[in-house]
Design a protein around this nucleic acid. Structure first.
Length: 432
DNA sequence: AGGCTTTGACCTGCA
DNA sequence: ATGCAGGTCAAAGCC
């Protein structure tokens, strides 16, 4: 039993404000928290930690051979042979760009846009996206909120614990670099694999160079023991720090390609055992499919924006999320505490009618319907179904459950005449 | 009427 | 022991 006060503190990463930002800002791994938390009742303590101190496990990172990249994949006869699918994807990407559909997986969209560019040269995103940093110091760039809707594209960061497939985007810092140093252009996009990836990431990890820009959200995740989870390794808290920058989804396809050629892209990297997952998402309240009730707001010292505290409104669900939002409405940091042990409320989707990936969410909700493990460990992952793990490259992993099927789900939808509209119709009819 | 947000006060942990 | 900061509570108001 733990009350709200027993929840581990989750520190926000605010490199730009942290007095020590220049020297060693950032996030601590859950592992460190667990081991270096004197005085904590459960041993879980969460603090900022310098990326340099982060025990980022690279041993599990598998880099794709030079021949494998989104570009090469796009040129794959397997993909190109499916003309129908291509056109559907092009249409999909075009529509997404056109109406600024909120998409949860910027990588997926990047990929789609890349495909679109390949086929019709329409990929023209001007601004790169944001930078994400996991608790383990993993950084990634991703999309910023839609300039028109303000909705955030959800950066998907899936880190696999020993058992979960993981994906993280990692920025490689030169020594001494801090998180707020956004000058580095070196990013890696690695796919990690766990022994048994529930997401279906095969053991053949992939490194996809993606020309994403630096400015962007910083993601970090926290871990703690929850009431529901007796397993010491269960992840319960995740946090995200979203950089405040005006940039659009992904980078241009040219940038993507260039990045791919220059090996300065993003690599998905897996976390090691204790950090289990980490899927993170930058999103607005209620946009993650769950219902939240704000129970507090506080201006934290050193923060220029007030910190808002939300609780999940689901009965007996004690999941909390904390985020800071700039006056312009941009979320600068998000922290999740706890894990949902319940499905997303159906009604919540109406709040997000334009959510492109809600299609996926539905599918995943059905497929996963929070079976013990992924819910305990990856409850929040369910919010981020379209993780980078859903990379088309991974989609080739036919024999794998999870991401492969997820991607298949995407394709299935895409291949329908207008799955998105169909879905909307269906939901509308249900609502009526 | 119910649910949510706002906001000042209170509680707790830490240095 | 004390002050500070972060997190939470809960009354009031709003939608």
């Amino acid at each position: 039993m733990e009350d709200s006060h027993s929840l581990p503190h989750t520190s926000f990463s605010r490199p730009q404000h942290s007095p020590s930002a220049n020297a060693a800002p950032q996030l601590t791994s859950a592992h460190d928290h667990l081991t270096d938390a004197p005085g904590s009742s459960n041993g879980a303590k969460y603090r900022l930690m310098s990326p340099a101190k982060l025990p980022i496990s690279r041993s599990t990172c598998i880099t794709i051979p030079p021949g494998l990249s989104p570009t090469s994949f796009l040129e794959s006869p397997v993909l190109l042979s499916n003309i129908k699918g291509i056109f559907a994807l092009v249409l999909f990407a075009s529509v997404a760009r056109e109406i600024q559909i909120r998409i949860r997986c910027q990588v997926c969209l990047c990929w789609l846009l890349n495909i679109a560019a390949k086929v019709s040269n329409i990929g023209k995103n001007e601004n790169p996206a944001f930078m994400l940093t996991s608790k383990r110091g993993v950084k990634l760039t991703s999309a910023e909120p839609s300039p028109t809707t303000g909705s955030f594209f959800k950066p998907q960061l899936m880190q696999g614990s020993g058992e979960n497939a993981a994906l993280s985007l990692q920025k490689h810092f030169s020594s001494g670099n801090t998180i707020d140093e956004r000058t580095s252009s070196s990013f890696e996009f690695r796919f990690h694999t766990g022994a048994n990836s529930t997401l279906g990431v095969s053991s053949a990890g992939l490194a996809i160079p993606v020309g994403l820009n630096r400015n962007g959200p910083v993601i970090h995740q926290d871990q703690r023991h929850t009431q529901q989870s007796s397993a010491p390794s269960s992840l319960a808290s995740q946090s995200i720090a979203v950089g405040i920058h005006d940039s659009s989804l992904c980078s241009t396809t040219d940038e993507l390609n260039q990045a791919g050629q220059s090996n300065t892209g993003i690599q998905a990297s897996s976390s090691d055992h204790k950090d289990s997952i980490s899927s993170v998402s930058a999103e607005r309240t209620s946009d993650d499919g769950y219902n939240w009730r704000k129970y507090g707001q506080k201006l934290v010292k050193g923060s220029e924006f007030p910190r808002s505290y939300y609780k999940c409104t689901y009965p007996n669900c004690e999941v909390k999320k904390i985020f800071e939002r700039s006056p312009s409405g941009q979320i600068t940091e998000i922290v999740y505490k706890g894990s949902h042990d319940h499905p997303k409320p159906q009604a919540a989707r109406r709040h997000n009618p334009g959510a492109l990936l809600s299609i996926q969410e539905d599918k995943l909700d059905r497929d996963l319907s929070f079976t013990g493990q992924e819910d305990k460990l990856n409850t929040n992952n369910m919010e981020q179904n379209c993780s980078p793990a859903l990379s088309p490259l991974q989609a080739n992993e036919d024999g794998v459950d999870g991401s492969g099927s997820q991607f298949q789900a995407i394709n299935d939808d895409v291949e329908e005449d207008d799955p998105f509209l169909k879905r909307r119709k269906m939901e509308d009819s249900i609502d009526v």
